[in-house]
């Protein structure tokens, strides 16, 4: 079982490009559909916990599923499985990267890639805004966080803590009726 946990998550880690949400359907097909380690409802619960805890989504899910199946050892094997493929592939690339970067053609390719990376990040802002059902009032948080980090250069960790506290304060002030949203 421990070896299976490692193997399944290593397979998932090795074959999903792009990370994050790209890995969710793969995890679901392996763990829920094929191996029936957990049922559908539990999978959704695990996804919700993985999203609301810090860190990489796929790793969080691996840790959780590993723990549900085989306790602490299970979570260690599943997490290691998920991390190993990307760790080694990145390590190999990083080792050759500096030498590789000295080629003129690679340098020019990266001149094109850099603005595209900016577009990817900018686009992810749109995508998250569209999919995350944030109520219009709360976009004040978004605007404030943007200004405070981009221009005032406040520590983003501080922003997370303050916005969590404010979220709870708003609940207390508005009363219980809004609690579900």
């Amino acid at each position: 079982m421990l070896f299976n946990l490692f193997y399944v998550f290593a397979k998932i880690g090795a074959f999903t490009l792009g990370g994050g949400y790209a890995m969710v359907p793969l995890i679901q097909s392996e763990v829920v559909d094929k191996r029936k380690w957990i049922d559908k409802e539990e999978f959704v619960d695990i996804l919700a916990v993985a999203q609301s805890t810090p860190g990489a989504l796929a790793i969080n899910m691996a840790t959780f599923i590993g723990y549900r199946k085989k306790g602490i050892l299970g979570s260690i094997f599943a997490t290691l499985g998920c991390v190993c493929p990307s760790f080694f592939s990145i390590l190999i690339i990083a080792m050759f990267f500096t030498r590789f970067m000295n080629y003129k053609i690679v340098e020019r390719a990266f001149c094109g890639i850099r603005p595209a990376v900016a577009a990817l990040i900018a686009f992810s802002v749109f995508k998250i805004a569209k999919s995350s059902s944030i109520k219009s009032f709360y976009y004040i948080f978004t605007a404030a966080a943007f200004i405070l980090v981009a221009f005032v250069k406040l520590d983003p960790i501080l922003i997370i803590i303050i916005s969590a506290v404010l979220g709870i304060l708003i609940l207390k002030i508005r009363g219980e009726k809004d609690a579900d949203n």
Partner: peptide, 17 residues
């Protein structure tokens, strides 16, 4: 849930930054 209703939009702002 209330904490996350504050954190989620703020994370979006961080990402925008």
């Amino acid at each position: 849930k209330a904490a996350f209703s504050g954190i989620r939009p703020a994370v979006l702002g961080l990402l925008a930054a």
